[in-house]
């Protein structure tokens, strides 16, 4: 019994210690962001790595998610003779929820894991230590541009996901199932509010982008410098950031759409 309590206590202390370290790490990384803005090529490289290279998975997934929404939505709406509202259903589902959330989950799996593995390997091969010895702060040179790139890339990826998803829904609904094209677009246009729906989705994706990238770079930087350590850190990045995205989504939705 005592040993169970002790184990619990140790796990709790370990958790809070890591949480604290993560925040200190974030603080010093954010201090490096303004300097990072001056070195635009570093930032652009990272936007390319995190954003552009994630495009394929985002576009393909977005299209399929949109198609499934179109199919499921049509089958439900047609029972009530409301299939013309398919455009609203597809657009609102994507812009409010699925776009930011699914794009963030994919981003965590594609870009987040890559970030953790890259930084973890840099630590394992002493590249970060070498930078420190060359009087270059790795938090400024390596972490800050990646953090900023993740925060910038994520909303764009979520927007692309939603846009492609709408076309996926259009393709199934209008193209294959015969929903009226004019009604599909017109109803969508009249019901989707720029501020309440689109902007809230954008805010969500900013928050998710920040959270996922923070977890990814911290896990990489905090890796135990062995191959097993990198493997654990990469797994932790995907698991923790996915859980964080889903948890935060609930909180944000409750705040935004009450």
């Amino acid at each position: 019994m005592i040993s169970v309590l002790r184990g619990l206590g140790r796990a709790g202390l370990g958790f809070f210690e890591r949480l604290g370290r993560g925040h200190v790490f974030l603080f010093y990384s954010l201090l490096g962001v303004p300097a990072g803005l001056y070195r635009i090529h570093l930032l652009l490289t990272q936007v390319y790595m995190a954003g552009v290279l994630s495009l394929v998975i985002i576009v393909v997934s977005g299209f399929f998610v949109g198609m499934v929404l179109g199919l499921q939505g049509y089958n439900t709406l047609v029972d009530f003779g409301a299939e013309e509202s398919l455009g609203i259903l597809v657009a609102l589902s994507l812009v409010r929820e699925l776009g930011p959330v699914v794009a963030a989950l994919l981003f965590a799996g594609r870009a987040g894991s890559a970030l953790t593995a890259e930084i973890g390997l840099m630590k394992t091969t002493e590249q970060l230590a070498a930078m420190e010895m060359m009087a270059v702060d790795p938090l400024k040179r390596v972490v800050a541009p990646r953090l900023l790139a993740g925060v910038l890339a994520m909303p764009l990826l979520a927007a692309i996901f939603s846009a492609v998803g709408v076309y996926g829904g259009y393709f199934v609904g209008v193209g294959l199932l015969g929903v009226d094209e004019g009604a599909f677009w017109a109803q969508m246009q009249s019901s989707v509010d720029f501020h309440d729906d689109i902007m809230n989705g954008v805010i969500k994706s900013f928050v998710f982008g920040f959270t996922v990238t923070w977890i990814a770079v911290f896990e990489g930087y905090d890796t135990v410098p062995t191959s097993e350590g990198i493997s654990r850190a990469t797994t932790r990045t995907v698991v923790n950031s996915s859980l964080a995205v889903l948890g935060l989504d609930f909180v944000l939705t409750a705040l935004m759409f009450d």
């Binding site: 590249q127 230590a129 070498a130 010895m133 060359m134 009087a135």
Partner: peptide, 19 residues
């Protein structure tokens, strides 16, 4: 410390080149 390190060179065992 960073200022001092500019005057120190270090050769790591692995080389630690930026890959």
């Amino acid at each position: 410390l960073l200022q001092l390190r500019k005057r120190m060179g270090m050769l790591f065992q692995s080389g630690a080149l930026l890959t």
